[in-house]
Design a protein around this nucleic acid. Sequence first.
RNA 1: GCACCCGUAGCUCAGCGGAUAGAGCGCUUGCCUCCGAAGCAAGAGGUCGCAGGUUCGAGUCUUGCCGGGUGCACCA
Length: 561
Amino acid sequence: MLIREQVARVVERALEKAQAAGQVPRVAYPEIAIERPSRPDQGDFATSFALKAKRAVGPQGPNPLAIAGAISAQIALDPPPFLATWEVAQPGFLNFTLADEWLRQQIDVVLAEGERFGDVPLGGERSVQVEFVSANPTGPLHFGNGRNAAIGDSLARVLAKAGWRVHREYYFNDAGAQVSNLHHSVWVQYQRLLGKDIPPAETDYPGEYVQDLARAIHAEHGDRFSDVPEERAAEIGSLGSARVMEWIRTELARANVQYDTWFSEASLIREGHFDAILDLLRSRDLVYEREGAVWLRSSTLGDERDRVIIRSDGRPTYLGTDIAYHYDKFFVRSFDRVINVWGADHQGQVPSIKAVVRALGVENDRFDVLVYQLVHLLRNGQPVRMGKRAGNFVTMGEVLDEVGPDAMRWFMASRSSDAMMEFDLDLAKKQSSDNPVYYVQYAHARLAKILREAPVEAALNTDVRLLTQPSELALLRRMLQLPEVVELAARQMAPHHVPHYAYELARATATWYEAGNDDPALRVLTSDERTRAARLKLADAARQVLANALGMIGVSAPEAM
RNA sequence: GCACCCGUAGCUCAGCGGAUAGAGCGCUUGCCUCCGAAGCAAGAGGUCGCAGGUUCGAGUCUUGCCGGGUGCACCA
């Protein structure tokens, strides 16, 4: 149980006893919320319960100070071992300070739990599917997809740590017009390679990569497709989109993202799932025909208007196949929960997909669309201009080449997904303390180094009571926040809390470590053997927590830099 | 016009209805014969876009306005 919950339990029991003793009235009280106070002198935890209870007890009831005082007095009758002090503060707060002894004992907990330290049982082993990136295989991933990858994969890692069984999935659209356009583009470039003067179509993709694809196909298959007519462009084009899929897989793997499933849109149609869902919707009177197209009655399901799901030419729309896809997620594979990570350029479709899921009869709390705002790329302090039309966009691969996977993931995941962000290429590749990702990795590498210098086996039976320095206790306090951070990030679907926490932990580590620069008695490898052993044990545990935090955002925890 | 997101220090951003709003960069000042200075310590810097409302209490919730972003297809 989270220590914060244990504090809540203490307050709860004290309140019950205060009621039994007639010190506070027996009324329906609000929930006991335990917070982190803003200032250190207010302790480790605080609750404004007594202030919130004011309304519950009414004007005739005790004032907040009296309620807090009664609770405090009851705690004093049977104080829990993990609390050192608890006190009433104006105008009715209760502040709690953890016992140093308890804090020090947690080092053993951290070391015993190892990689699992920070796990919280929020998900209760329920399954969650996280679908992210899912860009069409019509070209290399854009750098903006890097934010999707970082948010989606970090969220998956956070949820796994929060007790969910996580399934990562990439849904690729290999059935729609965009892919047909790519196929046509490849066909044109292939024919041109063979010397035929065929002009590209308006809808063709202009990027140089299309020519790369045509060249690669020619290198492998020679002139074999020279007689393929335009109507059958897909015969050669599909070789191109398959290659693009390979690029995408490779780049995502480089970004430390591994999927459980790559799900093909075309398979839904090919295997008849789309038609089956259509029958289901017809039987529920959720679709109708108009002007030769089939419409979903989405306006009755929370969308602003009805939507076409089958065009008048008989081909399903993207939303149409998405119905079958989400049916598969919820009813075939029966995920308990589904999260889609979408860029802000797709947020207009959120009401439609929500309507679809509602039409299938899925409870609202099983489905979320996490929308993240778009990224601006900065170089030399200037925005990097690009136009997809001209095909000169910056790819995720180029960003990976330039700053590396760790820096890309760190920055892309370190902003709230609600907020538009600037990605500063110069900062991200800077190997100095200006760059937070290096700062945090440096803290880890330092600890790893010192543990190599002086192996910990001597520290196994060490006396952690020798850890009395303020910087040591501050570091411990920070380490022990990890489970709360996991809980917060999971509950809010907000992985950006993790890098912020990792930075704070790295700073506490640096402060602790650097204290020895001014005073040799405070060095980790101090001359007193028993103290040194205790500090090494703390270093070992701190290193573990740093590694766990970095692991949650897919950033490496280097042994040396 | 409508929908969603944002507006917090010079810049980039945190801030789970609570107490005196935080961090990094940048700026100023100290620190390496010493475990990794890719670092540490300290200082200056704020009408939380504006105006109402709810609340014991609002940067946080709500309404309106202003400014910015993204959408508003039988494209995805």
